[in-house]
Design a protein around this nucleic acid. Structure first.
Lengths: 337, 337
DNA sequence: ATGAAAGCGCTAACAG
DNA sequence: CTGTTAGCGCTTTCAT
């Protein structure tokens, strides 16, 4: 019912109310050394009384904000949810808070969101931005330590956490080959063509290399689509209507695989699909998506750990690579495929 | 390759480099009135040169941060993704940036995350926190305008955006009744029992009222589970093993429904399931989840609009309610159910 | 059109 | 153990 909007009390108000100095309040705030219990009591009471909240922005001008920013290109991709879960777990019990900045749709590289985070004085950034140039990222890393998720370049300016995408793609392809498939299509994002060292670029390249090595070039087929299940579904739907000869599909990640499955199920086509990541829904019996699992939570936790090391003073770059794992499943909705 | 970590240039550095005053740089920054083109040129060049980034924290001490904070209890729930999509769309073309703060797992009310946002000086907050008390929220709304998502209380201190949960639950139940079901179970969150005016509380209450009105109390059954598909799946799995007599299940939201479907599909039980929200995956043919659709994107956009109105000076509270809609589907994995 | 100067809320020496 | 003081980087009158 406070009629006015006094935009909150300040440290000075608290100090006055408690009859102490601002420094004293500040110390209580940070529970720094050198405050008597009596004073702490009084100050806390005054804070309560005044509904006081410290302005981190003001604190930021001197030191840390205890905030980690995570930039994501696609909130709907549940692999990132796993990553974040791991990051949050690693941060549990610390003073750090996570904020997530979604890249605007259409902005292909996510740089704007990363910059927004940096401008807001986060102490460190974890970002998923396969299309950003190393130069842009190096420019950013001047302002805050940066861990890039899923990149395979090895700049000195930022750390990276990635999966072994070549090994993973190989697993996927070998699985399909063992099943006897010879006409295997690939569903990937447009970026795969341009950013050859991005996860999708590597998976595509590996797909092509294996098809060639197996003498199956004639049976290969690459379908492109934008991010997301809907775009994947539409792309495959269109492809099925035209000249489709493949018996299997390697989708560059699970969201695409699930979108493809949508079109395939609707068209009642007997096509084997394999995805990548192992998002939570992939294991649903109705979907039963065979996929290549990446340890998302561990990767997220590692990203946080790398950031903390940087905050503790490390200056050389670290590049962590995680091994993927094949997960074979079957679906109740498309038995025997 | 900048070896030192000078933590970035400041406005003073830019001013010096461009040979102008700090005020001038500030004006260019905000493209305020009264800067010659020549000066703007020079200043922009200097900024580029120095890799300058304005510190929003410093700006925050005077005015706005142009940041909207969104607190979410469960990143994995795709309904919130739809909400955020709507919010981002509404903000497109403005200077505002969205940051998302995930509530820590286990913290039942999400208050800490909301406070973290407020402490970081966001200009406004959208929050999903059915369990928070009105008092706590009113305390927060002193510091920043607040729009609560999915609450049915009507405090004067904050706005609300919610769906008509009673109407929605009624739709769901009537659908099952029309199908001829008489033994209908309900799967809901623990909070539904305590927070009677939360969405889940209302959906549960409506379920009970209808079962009673139809004289089907003997066939009713309420199963509780924690948030998320896994918890839902386990709860239903356990229930199925014991004394299960229901032929239909009304799950309080789609994530729970999908989790339940997991257990039901695995147990090969012929049970009709209806969810709530209509998350994107619900329409997948392998799942074919019948559900009650809420217009998530519109609700998110509306939340932003309410926030902007508050920032423009509105002081009376507004409470928006959206009408849900029944979406009937069928699944390829469990045909005829 | 441009600049000087005050001050936003907080922290971090340093004195007492 | 407590208080004084000097900024942090930016915006914003108010002069010039």
């Amino acid at each position: 019912m406070t009629s006015a909007k006094p935009r909150g009390a300040t440290i000075t108000d608290v100090a006055t109310a408690a009859g102490v100095s601002r420094a004293a309040v500040s110390k209580v705030l940070r529970d720094a050394y050198g405050v008597s219990d009596a004073m702490r009591e009084r100050v806390n009471a005054a804070m309560e009384e005044l509904n006081y909240r410290p302005r981190i922005a003001a604190r930021a001008m001197r030191g840390r904000t205890f905030t980690i920013g995570i930039e994501l290109p696609d909130l709907a991709n549940q692999f990132f949810t796993r990553m974040i879960t791991g990051a949050l777990q690693e941060l549990e019990g610390t003073r750090f808070q996570v904020v997530i900045a979604p890249a605007e749709r259409g902005s292909r590289h996510g740089l704007r969101a990363i910059e927004a985070l940096v401008d807001r004085q986060v102490d460190g950034v974890i970002a998923v931005a396969p299309r950003a140039t190393p130069e842009a990222l190096e420019r950013i890393s001047v302002h805050a330590p940066l861990v890039m998720f899923g990149r395979h370049d090895t700049s000195e300016a930022y750390d990276t956490v990635a999966g072994d995408d070549e090994a993973g793609a190989r697993m996927a392809m070998e699985h399909l080959l063992h099943l006897g498939h010879t006409r295997i299509a690939n569903l990937t994002l447009p970026e795969a063509d341009h950013d050859l060292s991005s996860p999708h670029g590597i998976r595509l390249r590996t797909y092509k290399a294996i098809m060639e090595a197996e003498g199956l070039v004639a049976g290969s087929r690459v379908v492109h689509c934008d991010e997301g299940q809907d775009a994947a579904s539409e792309a495959i739907s269109r492809a099925l209507e035209r000249d489709w000869h493949s018996t299997a599909l390697f989708a560059s990640h699970d969201e695409l695989a699930i979108g493809a499955l949508r079109a395939i199920t609707e068209a009642r086509h007997p096509i084997s699909v394999i995805g990548y990541d192992d998002v939570p829904i992939a294991s649903h019996p109705a979907l039963g998506l065979t996929t290549v699992r990446q340890p998302g939570a561990e990767m997220g936790a590692t990203a946080i750990r790398l950031l903390m090391e940087r905050l503790d003073g490390r200056t050389e770059a670290v590049h962590e690579v995680f091994e993927p794992e094949l997960v074979v499943r079957s679906s109740t909705s498309r038995p025997g495929i």
